[in-house]
Each structure stands twice: as structure tokens, then as C-alpha cells.
Design a protein around this nucleic acid. Sequence first.
DNA 1: TTGTTTTATTTGTCATGACAAATATTTAAA
DNA 2: TTTAAATATTTGTCATGACAAATAAAACAA
Lengths: 147, 147
Amino acid sequence: MEYNLDNTINHRIATLAILLKRQVYRIIAENNLEITPEQWVIMYYLWKENGLSIGEIAAKSKKDFGNVTRIIDKLEKLEYVNKRKNDKDSRIINIYLLPKAEDIKEPITKCWEKSTNITLKGISDSEQEILLNILNKIENNILENLE
Amino acid sequence: MEYNLDNTINHRIATLAILLKRQVYRIIAENNLEITPEQWVIMYYLWKENGLSIGEIAAKSKKDFGNVTRIIDKLEKLEYVNKRKNDKDSRIINIYLLPKAEDIKEPITKCWEKSTNITLKGISDSEQEILLNILNKIENNILENLE
DNA sequence: TTGTTTTATTTGTCATGACAAATATTTAAA
DNA sequence: TTTAAATATTTGTCATGACAAATAAAACAA
């Protein structure tokens, strides 16, 4: 084989993402929380700015529009959020956090921190900074290309 | 919010992986190839070592056992591989590449290279090396933790 | 040899990627 | 104003994550 996939950055990132997902799922399960990592990400953006529209959430989270719709539907069933039509433009649906969301905020954030701590064991602050910088560049490269 | 998800390495890797997946899917579609990135990854390991068992492929690719079974089933339908029971231990299924696999080898490898080139635009060799090193450390941290 | 444990694979179910087509509403153009 | 184009969301379908339970065969123990 001319070419070593395991030294390819794209493939390493894809593999790492799978492992990270597995890790977070398990930590969440150990803590008996009723939420998934992806659901949490969306709630995170709502905690930062309650009432975002589906489109805004999709843009911020870089998720597919349709997938966001479905994740929101699940969050609605779990009673973490509700949907409300925008008064001025009824094409737009705004999403609002419900009280039950508050219950899960601290424990799920702790799960995330736990996962991050495992990930970063033995990696210095300066390495982390370098890593984030390079990851930023890569993300910009991809976004530029995807338009 | 006490805490900025967008500066979290775990989250950045997860997001990047989504964007990378989208990018590769599109490149593959532009080239009208009948394969997915995950299917390709499995074929890559077979090109390196034809006849691997499902379990070996799962271990090498770090994918879930059951998911590998299903990806192999699809590769079989596409006539890229076939399954053969191991003579000595009939619990084991070995997977062998078929001639049709050869047709796709070069074009799909090119797609992957194209995607990698987009990703790495403006990132120096030394940065790439540093990045791979840190990603290795992270992967080891996670694997250690998952057992 | 028979019963138990381990190992390899399959299958079931749910969540979320991907893309495309359908719907509804608003904006812009004729 | 009526029609066409653009925008926001939903829905459909497939592929692949996750985990758990089921099946089949081999290895080990009694």
C-alpha cells in the first residue's frame, strides 16, 4: 500500500471522534442522565442564548438543518425545550428552554468536563493551545471549501 | 455561561469530524463513486491485509463489531468483498476482496487525498507532525480509559 | 464426555450523520 | 396584485454510530 491511512489527519480525526463519542456516551450512561451528547450541544447553545431559531442552532452547531429539527423534537418530548412560532415571521420557529432543562445543566456539564479531562491527560496548556489553533485552521479550510 | 464549548477540544474534534464527513461525502458524490467513507476505510485495511476477520477489522478500524458486520454486508452486496468461513475455527469469518474492488481503489484513494489536501491547506509539515503527535496522545488516553 | 465459559458474529433498536424533496411563508419582480 | 424566487422548516431514506441480547462454535472443567 502506497499510503498509510493511519497517518492521515482526516482519518485520525474521524477515528478520534468515534472514540470520543463512545466515551461520552458511557460517562452519560454511568450518571443515568436522560440526554445524548448531541442533544446537549444544542441545549448548550440555548443556554447561551435562549430562543434561537432552528436555523440559528444549525448554523452555530454546524449540524444539518433536518437533523437539528429531529434533535429538537426529541428535546421537546423530554420536556427540556418547547417550540414557538415567531410572531413576525411565521416560517421561523424559536426554541425555548423549559424548567426541566435546569435540572440537567450541571450534571451534564460535569460529564463533559470529565470526558475532556480524560482526553487531555498529560497534554500541556501550550500543546492544547497549539492544537486548538491548528484545528481552527482546518475548520476554516473545510468551511471555506463547503461554502 | 461559565464555560465555552467552542474552546473545548473534545467538541472541536467532534464538530470537525462532522464537517470532514460532509466534505468526503460530497467529493465521493462528485466522482460518482458507489462507496461510503466508512466502507472505504474497511477496504483499506483489507488492501493492506486481505482475508482479515470481522473482529480484526473492528479492532483495526476501532469500529463497533456489529457496525462492521453491517458495513461488510453492504460491501458484499456491492460485490467488493466476499465472506468465507474459517476452516479451522468456524466462528470466524474471513473477508476477501473481489476483483471489482480493484476498480474503485484508485479513484477512492484520490478522493481521500483531495479531502486531505483541502484540510491541510496552509498547515506546515511541522504543524502536521505536532498535530499527529497530540492526536496520538489523545487517542491513547481515550483507549486506556475505555479499556 | 458433558456442562460451563469464552469467543466471534449477528441482529435489534435507537440516535444522528448525509442528501433531497416537500411545505409553508415571505420577499421581490412583473 | 399576481407570480416567481427565496427562505425556514419538515420529512423521507439510507448509512453508521451506540449498546445489548441472541446465536453458534470452540475451549475448558468436572
